[in-house]
């Protein structure tokens, strides 16, 4: 009965929304010309990167804060050294997997740096680079080459929070004589690159930490 009612409601909702989308009037507000105007002084040439780090910098600043809060939540939910979570050692039975992981990990770092650099003028940027780095870290763990993270060390803690602190410092510095996130026009390109580099490292560590702090803590090969 519940199954029928929920399915019918979801189906009705989908049909109602689809008919609304099909009869949608043309957009009243178009941000594209405004954005195209702002690109030359935004410090980067790619519009998505310009939105993320310049015109909507708030979103990105709060996003990295949200990620840190989520990671702290994971640390609280899974206390370090929880015996219930370390029953199984991390193993890779196939000899090919660690060999391949050793080959892929440096390439992933190289590719991440390229993607970070490419973000200024084509699709790419801090998030994508961080996802590639985090994937490399997870791959190394799954191949049995690195241990899972038990408790964050001081170095790891600094790495986790560096991106947020660098971004916050650069965002708050103009408060002395202006507004939050108002970059000085002469330095805007360099500042965005600094912010993006910090974000890449911190985001990669947070994303990898979400996996590696939850992973089984087995022996290292």
């Amino acid at each position: 009965m519940k199954r029928f009612a929920v399915s019918a409601a979801a189906l009705g909702f989908a049909f109602w929304l689809i008919s609304a989308l099909l009869n949608l009037p043309a957009t009243l507000i178009d941000l594209r010309p405004l954005l195209a105007e702002a690109i030359p002084k935004s410090g980067v040439a790619h519009p998505v990167t310009a939105v993320l780090l310049n015109t909507r910098g708030y979103d990105t600043l709060l996003e990295i804060a949200v990620l840190l809060v989520a990671l702290i939540g994971v640390l609280i939910a899974v206390p370090p050294g929880n015996p219930a979570l370390s029953e199984r050692p991390a193993t890779a039975d196939d000899a090919m997997v660690p060999a391949l992981a050793r080959l892929v990990a440096p390439l992933a770092v190289f590719f991440a740096i390229y993607v970070l650099w490419a973000g200024a003028h084509r699709p790419g940027g801090a998030f994508q680079a961080a996802a590639i780095l985090a994937a490399a870290l997870v791959l190394l763990h799954l191949a049995g080459l690195t241990a899972a993270w038990s408790a964050p060390t001081l170095r790891l803690r600094i790495g986790l929070i560096a991106g947020f602190l660098i971004f916050l410092a650069i965002a708050a510095a103009p408060l002395l004589g202006g507004m939050l996130l108002q970059y000085p026009p002469a330095l805007v390109g360099t500042l965005i690159l600094v912010i993006e580099s910090g974000l890449t490292i911190s985001l990669a560590l947070v994303l990898a930490g979400l996996f590696l702090l939850l992973a089984d803590r087995g022996g290292v090969r």
């Binding site: 954005l35 310009a50 939105v51 909507r56 979103d59 985001l203």
Partner: peptide, 18 residues
């Protein structure tokens, strides 16, 4: 439109963390 694209990019990362 780059603006919603950037918002979705942010949303994806937050969704992964959540």
């Amino acid at each position: 439109d780059p603006v919603p694209q950037a918002m979705v990019l942010t949303g994806i990362v937050v969704a992964v963390a959540a």
